[in-house]
Amino acid sequence: MDYKSIKKFTMKILNSLKTLTTGNKKLPQTASGLALATHPQSGTDAASHIEIGAGSNAHSSVGSAAKPARMETRGLTVMYGKATGVHNISIPIHTRKVTALIGPSGCGKTTFLRALNRMHDLTRIARVTGEVLLDGKNIYDSDINPVLIRRRIGMVFQKPTPFPTMSIFDNVVAGLKLVGIRNRSILNEACEKALRQAALFDEVKDRLGDAAVSLSGGQQQRLSIARALAVEPEVLLMDEPTSSLDPQATNRIEELIHSLKKEVTIVIITHNMQQAARVSDYTAFFYMGKLVEMGKTKSLFTNPRQKKTEEYITGRFG
């Protein structure tokens, strides 16, 4: 018994356990609980499409581009102890569109966003009620494994969060390594694809082995986006992704969002009205933990139905 065979054996056991706990018996067994299926509509560069198997059976073996996840919230409420974070939010998250969440600080945008991929599970005092439906299935159901949900719904944070001890390459493929992909050529391919999607590849292609923290702030943020994209999520949540960046880097990220929405559903929080108007298709305005209104970005900005919305977007408060 050498190290590798022991590892293989352990992975096998872990995988069967994983399948048991997620209740997904249909998942084809590969080295990692991942289904490697040929992509029906893929272009030339992506010969194999990596699809994260998850608990939902509506979405089991078809690639995300072929049948993207539908997402909506119903009566979503998050409480921090006795304080209400957001109250009774019911909105659709339009597939392969960009939905912007706007509102003054403390209005519950971030609280809402973090409820969409169960990040509140990590905060002991937060309690989530209501539903977040992904393909008709509530992600808060007891038979859902939050780890698998987070693989389908990725997240990018306000500050760049490269893992400081890892190289650029290792950062990008960190999520893939988590699900057990060790094949170097698959990793290389996925790394290049994600970096290209994040418009970072040309800048770092000759120094993938360098420390991730050697990059500039804007590059680090694009690296964080590439890392989130590498696991091929169906939905990408972005919490003020440009707030710590200069205008030029902001511009690049906005272009990136624009090109990404062809493949991924995006929900973005922004404090910048112009940015919301530029990048999003739909906008939801939050105020004091409640949804004031949501609509097509164009109509919300040109013809808001609520007075509060008008006051906010014209800069009278917030």
Partner: peptide, 27 residues
């Protein structure tokens, strides 16, 4: 906290968060 959340958001389990984000940072 950001480091932990970043790895959580990638779909890391509790142990994987410790291995990937916490221990390298705290080494």
């Amino acid at each position: 906290k950001e480091q932990r959340e970043a790895s959580r958001a990638l779909g890391a389990t509790r142990w994987e968060v410790i291995r990937m984000a916490v221990l390298p940072y705290a080494r």
